[in-house]
């Protein structure tokens, strides 16, 4: 059912489902810090976050609201809302540093090499423009094709993302589509120029559960067929378990654990990760009650200097007043002084 879209400027990557970061990563984020500068001084919203992604990989970025997941995604596509700004660190795509690019050059990269999918498909599309026009406009911006070829490509894309009768639907307006169909259109828009990386910021949060599964499966298919890497930003551990190859857990602007999904889910190394997993309701595993992590995540600006989770951590020790670095343990990395012990939060 899925058509093979031509890859302009083709990138014949062989199949990669590596769990370990490749020596030449597609995306490399190094010690990324973001400050929000206000009149009352600057507040650190993202604190020395580092991770890599290889081509065709789905990396889940998970955490509570305000943990800095969306901010990381926005930083990668160069759309941090003011007054936020990158304070230190660097972001590279295919070995080329992109966080210091001129806005002009970054604009050319967006949609071409790095695409984005946002949370709410109902508001992501221009309500006054036919979806076909929105797709062809994106294609014409990035690819050296004429109007007719662009429209043909738009049709192929719509078919590929599972829009029935694309010849008819291409001339419809966004309000004529349901939420799930609109998110498919948004995905088609993200795929316009065959990007190497898609930042998917809560792509299923605004959708019905049954539609969620369809969209996740569509994303996985697209990722596999086009060797597109996806940074899947979500607060939903279920989505991560379903879709991601690896998962990165964020807390209070820091990356606290990163590793292969099965390993992180089965044997979390960070106490916070264990708590997150314990708070997922499960149909198979009947319990008296779900785990609840006491307290609330510290607001940016009042994050403790040591381990950010220490004030809420049931396994706190004196050492936690010092900041733990992200260190390898097993196939994962975790920033926890007691990472070696294995946790089940209860």
């Amino acid at each position: 059912m899925l058509v093979d879209l031509e890859r302009p400027g083709g990138n014949p990557m062989t199949n990669t489902t590596t769990d370990r970061p490749d020596p030449s990563p597609l995306l490399s984020v190094r010690d990324l810090s973001i400050d929000f500068v206000t009149r009352r001084g600057s507040v650190r919203a993202l604190d020395r976050v580092s991770f890599d992604m290889v081509p065709g990989e789905i990396l889940g970025l998970v955490g509570e609201s305000g943990a800095g997941k969306s901010l990381s995604g926005n930083a990668i596509i160069g759309l941090i809302d003011p007054p936020g700004r990158i304070a230190e660190g660097q972001i590279s795509l295919d070995g080329r540093r992109i966080d210091t690019l001129a806005p002009r050059d970054m604009r050319k990269l967006r949609g071409r090499s790095i695409a984005a999918i946002f949370q709410d498909p109902l508001t992501s599309l221009d309500p006054l423009m036919r979806i076909g026009d929105q797709i062809t406009e994106t294609i014409l911006t990035h690819l050296p094709v004429n109007r007719r070829q662009a429209r043909q490509r738009a049709l192929d894309l719509l078919r590929a993302v599972g829009i029935p009768a694309p010849e008819l639907r291409i001339d419809h307006y966004p309000h004529q589509f349901s939420g799930g169909m609109r998110q498919r259109v948004v995905i088609a828009l993200a795929l316009c120029a065959d990007p190497k990386l898609i930042i998917a910021d809560e792509p299923t949060t605004a959708l019905d559960v049954s539609i969620q599964a369809q969209i996740i499966s569509l994303l996985k298919t697209m990722c596999r067929e086009h060797q597109t890497a996806i940074l899947l930003v979500t607060h939903d551990m279920g989505v991560i378990a379903e879709a991601a190859d690896r998962v990165a857990v964020m807390y209070a602007g820091r990356l606290v654990e990163i590793g292969p999904v099965e390993e992180v889910l089965r044997a979390p190394k960070h106490v916070y990760t264990a708590g997150l997993i314990g708070s997922i309701p499960s149909l198979n595993r009947r319990r008296e009650r779900l785990v609840q992590i006491d307290g609330a995540m510290p607001r940016p600006g009042s994050v403790p200097s040591g381990c950010p989770f220490a004030p809420r951590c049931p396994k706190r020790i004196d050492k936690c007043a010092e900041r733990p670095e992200l260190l390898p343990i097993g196939n994962s990395q975790a920033a926890c002084w007691r990472a070696g012990e294995g946790h089940s939060y209860a």
Partner: peptide, 26 residues
């Protein structure tokens, strides 16, 4: 401030297209 303008930016559209085709028209 709307999402579709933000999404238009994320699609890498040129500033003129964002401001006139999508912004002004709306």
């Amino acid at each position: 401030r709307t999402d579709f303008i933000r999404f238009a930016r994320a699609r890498g559209l040129r500033a003129r297209a964002i401001y006139f085709r999508h912004g002004l028209r709306n």
